[in-house]
């Protein structure tokens, strides 16, 4: 099953990466195993987002930069507004990184 490493940049992914770095550098974990953990995280995170999350969001804003490279869209929005059922977040500048969802189904 193909996975995205995309989510490793999220908070939970960064926390895991830091943990693995510490454990590998202290010798309690082998680098190979650490890689396996990260790959498993990619799978579990993708799966959890598919199965556990239902909320919908609308995004509006001024598109400052757009880029499509290696099947990854990158948008930089200015004065963006994120709305979901519960709350609204206003952000002066936000970066959106999106991988092609079709790559997962292949």
């Amino acid at each position: 099953m193909a996975t995205f490493e995309l989510y490793r940049r999220s908070t939970i992914g960064m926390c895991l990466t830091e943990t693995l770095d510490e454990m590998v550098s202290s010798g309690t974990l082998s680098p190979d195993l650490a890689i396996q953990v990260l790959v498993q995280f990619d799978k579990s995170m993708t799966e959890a987002l598919e199965t556990q999350v239902k909320s919908k969001v609308t995004v509006k804003g001024h598109l400052h930069t757009y880029r499509f490279c290696d099947n990854v869209w990158t948008f930089i929005l200015q004065d963006a507004v994120f709305k979901n059922e519960e709350s609204q977040e206003n952000v002066g500048k936000v970066k959106i990184v999106a991988c092609d969802s079709k790559l997962l189904t292949q």
Binding site: V53, S55, G61, H62, Y66, N84
Partner: peptide, 13 residues
């Protein structure tokens, strides 16, 4: 941190 299953974006360049 906010998760979403779907998001619609409308941007003006």
């Amino acid at each position: 941190d906010i998760l979403f299953s779907k998001a619609n974006g409308e941007f003006e360049f």
